[in-house]
Design a protein around this nucleic acid. Sequence first.
DNA 1: GGGATGTGCAACAATCTGTTGCGCAACGCA
DNA 2: TGCGTTGCGCAACAGATTGTTGCACATCCC
Lengths: 203, 203
Amino acid sequence: MWFTCEVTPSPPDDGDRPLDPRVAQTRRIVVEAAAALLGEEGFERLTLESIAERSGVARSTIYRNWPDRAVLLADAFDQLCVFPEVPDLGSMVDELRLLAEELANGLRSDEWANALPSLVGAAHHDESLTQAQAQFSQRRRAMTAVIFERAAERGEVSSAQDPSLLAEYFAAPMFFRFLMTRQPIDDDFIERHIGVIVDLAKR
Amino acid sequence: MWFTCEVTPSPPDDGDRPLDPRVAQTRRIVVEAAAALLGEEGFERLTLESIAERSGVARSTIYRNWPDRAVLLADAFDQLCVFPEVPDLGSMVDELRLLAEELANGLRSDEWANALPSLVGAAHHDESLTQAQAQFSQRRRAMTAVIFERAAERGEVSSAQDPSLLAEYFAAPMFFRFLMTRQPIDDDFIERHIGVIVDLAKR
DNA sequence: GGGATGTGCAACAATCTGTTGCGCAACGCA
DNA sequence: TGCGTTGCGCAACAGATTGTTGCACATCCC
């Protein structure tokens, strides 16, 4: 989140003094409302007025807590992006299938369908959103790579293959369909796709 | 283009009567200006005022020729998307390398870097832009599939592989890097990627 | 040549972003 | 408990942008 990150250059947080409870409350409520609306509207259609209305916080107060719309939306997107770890199922194919279905469900959900594509567009000329997008990609990639790391440990695949690269090839066609071609990400596709990835991992 | 397409439901074109030269002139000039600005600014930042200024056509006249901003931008995007066929080089790998470099150069260019990501965002809640995006994806896919079809004819790969599917796996990782992860699409990546695709085609 | 049609211009409403000043309420420290 | 500090709601504001409209003028086509 923007206001809890000590690394970002913009310094809205005063430091280590505990936050005024009014401020903490305001920021929490606003980000929650923004995240909800982000899932309903996407970045472009989402107005600060609607966030103010849903959260019950005045627009002027929102501007006192975030420098501009994009930074708030980046925080809201972070809020939206919580995904579970893939459990160890003892089999790479099973884990890939589970993850593929989780991702497919996500991409089919209104939340992601509204938030993700508009993020892609908006991120290309805003630094805060670029960061939010990079963090999203990185998290998903790491979470996917774990599957291939475990498979290598089990001896299911040769350890010569880079788990991170395999994770990239796992994610790319699904996002490509979602963002660019709009082809369905259905069971047939998933099953065939997993076959391709398994071939790649075992080659 | 919106105004020359007989299939689209919206009927701005009066039919087969030749267009008033004033109208033809206006539309041509405006789309050209819009396409140029699209490559410079992207969808979100591009204003109708700037198109009016660059084209020398009044904003009111633009609105008389296109129902709204999105439809004009869809036409402008079409204008921007002209890509060459891949020549028969007698070798699948050579042709893939050529196409990958063409695509990488495109994605590195300001034109595409500005237009494409913003299209992804904008297309998700506008029908005209959805169509423009679908057409773009389809054209590129067909153009890529030709490489695999020729390879199958030459006997370089088994004809069991679906050229269209291979085209999808060829494009997806490059667009994924461009749109989502922002990782570089450099020579190393291209070379490794072509290796992956060749493996897929030959499996 | 003359009616029909397209264009430029200017003004307009509506929406949205971002800012500011003021009065009031909540906070935290003594 | 009291009081200075700080945050908040409200209202108004400037500026940008999208679309729309009426009118005068130029161009087109018959």
